[in-house]
């Protein structure tokens, strides 16, 4: 399946839940509503022509207006690649855990909670692990984060 065929197939099969986005430059990129996330993930994994069984990467994005969570998945058996993202509001960002589908998401989701302050429902182990245990300065990966000893690189023209 080429990338165009994959995009067409996914749009046809899951068109009501996965909305294609124009900003993807290499692999097909879709948007998923936060409520549909786990269902879509399960369907992508179980579809016999897709079999997305391998979670490559999962990362949060802060665009200053909203949060995005990007899921990069791959299929080892069918040799495919696909990205999809969930868009969340800045206030009360919450998302469901996809550990049921891809158990490897566990640490990536802990990172979301720790560095971005995005609450992950049904995670089961949202504890600090990258930052020091006594950390109390908020969520450092947010764009508006600041601290007294945080030095920004001066602009040089």
């Amino acid at each position: 399946m080429t990338k165009q065929e994959l995009a067409a197939y996914v749009t046809e099969k899951f068109g009501d839940k996965l909305r294609p986005l124009e900003s993807g430059r290499y692999d097909p990129l879709f948007e998923v509503q936060a409520g549909d996330l786990v269902d879509v993930a399960q369907a992508l994994k179980e579809d016999e022509n897709l079999r997305f069984d391998f979670l490559c990467n999962l990362g949060g994005v802060d665009t200053k207006e909203r949060f995005e969570i990007v899921y990069n998945v791959a299929s080892i058996t069918k040799n495919l690649r696909l990205d999809f993202k969930v868009i969340l509001p800045y206030e009360q960002a919450e998302v469901d855990s996809v550990q049921k589908v891809w158990p490897g998401a566990n640490w990536y989701e802990r990172e979301l909670w720790e560095l971005y302050g995005i609450h992950v429902r049904n995670h089961g182990n949202l504890t600090r692990f990258l930052l020091p245990d006594e950390w109390d300065q908020g969520y450092p990966m947010r764009k508006n984060w600041d601290a007294p000893d945080f030095v920004r690189l001066p602009e040089i023209d």
């Binding site: 990258l130 930052l131 300065q137 000893d149 945080f150 920004r152 690189l153």
Partner: peptide, 10 residues
């Protein structure tokens, strides 16, 4: 890691 890092001891 002097600039822009929140985790490194300077």
């Amino acid at each position: 890691f002097y600039y822009d890092s929140y985790a490194v001891e300077k």
